[in-house]
């Protein structure tokens, strides 16, 4: 896919950091505010897809390494299952929340009822949010990237 006009490219460059930071914010605050790993990952992946549509697939493929994408996706999936298995080791069951109330990372228990939120709560939920968020960002972006690149090469073959 070729790149679009200069107006589209400039606006995409300006809007990309804001969309990316909003997606990462939704992932990081998944245990406090609405949203979570999947929703924040979808927002961040749409920011990447906007860059892809504006600049074209050839430019985007020059800027990134495919090996790194596969490493990140595998890291997300393995991290998710590893945290679940750690629940089997330290706690009682698969997907056990073993960090809650342990005074370690994310171990504080908040006061019951509505009130000011503390980010140091939630047990394993923030870690699982990070893992699933990484997996969703890379997974959805790889789908769009591969389809764009295949569309380009398919069109060149037809000519």
């Amino acid at each position: 896919m070729t790149k679009m006009s200069k107006i589209v490219r400039t606006i995409a460059s300006i809007a990309f950091p804001f969309a990316m930071i909003y997606g990462l914010y939704v992932i990081a605050h998944g245990h406090l505010t609405p949203g979570g790993g999947f929703q924040g990952g979808a927002i961040a992946a749409s920011a990447c897809a906007m860059i892809l549509v504006a600049f074209g697939s050839k430019w985007t493929l020059d800027k990134i390494k495919e090996k790194r994408l596969s490493v990140f996706e595998s890291l997300g999936g393995i991290g998710f299952i590893a945290i679940a298995l750690l629940g089997l080791v330290f706690g009682a069951a698969f997907f056990n929340n073993f960090l809650t109330g342990s005074n370690f990372l994310f171990g504080t228990i908040p006061a019951t009822g509505s009130g000011l939120a503390d980010i140091n709560t939630g047990g394993v939920l923030p870690l699982m949010n990070f893992a699933v968020g990484l997996k969703v960002i890379v997974g959805l972006f790889v789908i769009v990237l591969v389809m764009a690149y295949a569309a380009t090469s398919f069109k060149e073959d037809k000519k």
């Binding site: 927002i43 992946a45 749409s46 897809a49 906007m50 549509v53 959805l140 398919f154």
Partner: peptide, 26 residues
């Protein structure tokens, strides 16, 4: 249902549109 709203806005309004635009430009 703000969770569903965020997922719908991210996937339905952005990613699906990007995939359709790629398919139309091909």
């Amino acid at each position: 249902a703000p969770d569903v709203a965020i997922a719908q806005a991210g996937v339905g309004a952005c990613l699906t549109t990007a995939i359709f635009i790629i398919a139309i430009r091909a």
